[in-house]
Design a protein around this nucleic acid. Structure first.
Lengths: 338, 338
DNA sequence: CCGACTTGAGTAATCGTTTTCTAATGAGTA
DNA sequence: TACTCATTAGAAAACGATTACTCAAGTCGG
């Protein structure tokens, strides 16, 4: 089943291949009558240009990639979907690369993507310092890069992040205003900007209300549910346990909820909860969960827009954007017990 | 930043490009000493072969694609991850295409994937009849196809599905053995094989236990949470409501749980629940949810293996495989109330 | 010692486009 | 009329690999 080539189209229309190419890419004037002949030859032969040849000749592809640490995390999925949407509209297909939070896998992928000459890459880096080095090599090849949910060190790329600081500050303030004085935090690893910013938001809210920052109320985890489960269990087993908890991510929430179930505590009677990240089941939970929702799709969409701009040759100085979060009050955060 | 070509490597090593190519693909004997020279030239120039040129010449790529109706559905994500794992190991990168259950988008994607000459495609078809037509065109181009979680009509491709029938039959039997006599079913659309098979499994379990099949206890939805919410609300508002419910998918479960919350019913005191699909938050739910778990990663992995076999030229007659499910008892399905 | 056969390496064709150069035609101007 | 300048289309050169073909130099058996 060999597909027809441009040459055959040219023969059929009685013109040269150059003319066919010109018609296809309309980047040069072609006489109306010839254009017609070419068009109908294309139609007739059901010709479709060979992408592979075009790629070689133009030294470029219509593919963009997104590199994420964990494709099973709904946050990244939703981001990827937002990206896919704008990519599809612009005629690009997207490749999803899952690094499993492993720098080697990430390097391997960036290497391959560089070889394949994707037009651009959205990267959620595994290591804000060491990933940056690899990213710079990619940039040297003329491939556009946008960083998402991470802050790449010393790499001149556009960035897209949520307002992690503000979102957390609002939520924790809400808890304090509900009368909570001992508010715990299950934080993420400090090597990621969003985790740092959420922690800062938490601390700022305490400061805003004249409360002390108590290190005993803060547990740092790796954003995985199992670590969060252990940390929560520990935190809530202490004699003087917090009456409210801020959970720094959806995965953390899953672990913490397991721990709370296990300890037999009531939500929000014994412990109030607010979660960073909305989850599709949050409203179905018992009680429904109060959350700080990120605009995940927009995050991905914006990253896509910025990437496309770069691909089209924009040379604006790179710059970081922050998307607002929404505070969604449901039922898991109530007044502090007396 | 032009990257070095094979020609430059050849010059640097004092050999011909053919020899360099032979060293790279070691598909012909090359003298040890020359091979060394070539290798060190490659090393020295940091040469990496141009994938685009290779693609054109060999008329093939190292990319495979997975086409899914809803990338935000954890089932498909997990499948995609399983696929990605085997693909990565085999040196392929994977493209994820989200059709949003829209046949036009699906066609558009299959079209593009055909043009890009991906090596293979795993497709979770939107329409088991009409997608098949498009798939046949893809096959004609020599692109391998495996169908996943769907049964393509009249398309000679390998298929991978869960044991939907058996999994459901076991679960519903369990409910009946717990004393439930009125077991409801929130089913998926009959146009998908898995939905049909789950329904058949449900009916078979009733038959096995000598219970009548009562159409009033069966609600058909489109697998989306909002429809499931409405259907559940309706089903549970009836005077003679069921004491147990089998929910045909994770999304259905989210909708049904919202409805149950809304009606103020207790799980499992008022209503017992079993869900087809495990969910990462199932064990964190209150009460933890009893589920029929699919081996999602294996599903994707197996599809990948089959795809790779085809890509490597296997011409076995295509054939459908079924993966077993696991019945995971947690707390949402209890004994029937007196 | 010579032909047949093997082995290793180079030459050049090829994949299907895009694009540069060149040539031809026609319009406009002096 | 002759000359310039656009405009349009064809011929041919890339793009960077793979691979069919060719040929030189050994190797081996008779």
């Amino acid at each position: 089943m060999k597909s027809p080539t441009m040459k055959e189209v040219a023969q059929h229309a009685g013109v040269s291949v150059a003319t066919v190419s010109r018609v296809l890419n309309d980047n040069a004037a072609v006489d109306g009558e010839l254009r017609q002949r070419v068009m109908s030859a294309i139609e007739h032969l059901r010709y479709r240009p060979n992408r592979l040849a075009r790629n070689l000749r133009t030294n470029s592809t219509k593919t963009i990639a997104i590199v994420v640490p964990d494709i099973e995390n709904p946050f990244f999925v939703s981001v990827a979907r937002g990206l896919e949407e704008v990519a599809f509209r612009a005629g690009y297909t997207v490749m999803v690369c899952n690094t499993d939070d492993d720098l080697d896998r990430e390097s391997a992928y960036l290497q391959v993507l560089g070889d394949e000459l994707v037009a651009g890459i959205v990267v959620c880096a595994t290591d804000e310092r060491r990933s940056a080095e690899q990213v710079r090599k990619i940039l040297d090849k003329g491939i556009a890069v946008v960083s998402l949910d991470r802050r790449l060190e010393n790499a001149a790329v556009d960035g897209v992040l949520s307002d992690n600081f503000g979102g957390t500050r609002t939520a924790v303030s809400y808890l304090i205003e509900q009368g909570h004085r001992r508010v715990g935090l299950i934080a993420g690893p400090a090597k990621y900007a969003p985790a740092r910013e959420r922690r800062m938001g938490y601390e700022q809210a305490l400061i805003d209300h004249g409360l002390p920052i108590n290190p005993e109320l803060i547990k740092v985890t790796n954003f995985k549910s199992s670590e969060a489960e252990a940390a929560t269990e520990e935190l809530l087993s202490s004699a003087d346990r917090p009456t409210a908890l801020f959970l720094s991510s959806g995965n953390v929430a899953i672990g913490s909820l397991r721990a709370i179930r296990h300890l037999g505590l009531g939500i929000p009677s014994d412990i109030s909860l607010i979660i960073f990240d909305d989850l599709d089941w949050a409203a179905a939970y018992n009680p429904p969960l109060t959350v700080v929702a990120q605009n995940t799709r927009q995050l991905g969409g914006l990253a896509g827009d910025l990437l496309l701009q770069r691909i089209r040759g924009s040379s604006e100085p790179p710059h970081e954007r922050h998307l607002p979060t929404q505070f969604v009050v449901r039922g898991s955060a109530g007044r502090a017990p007396q």
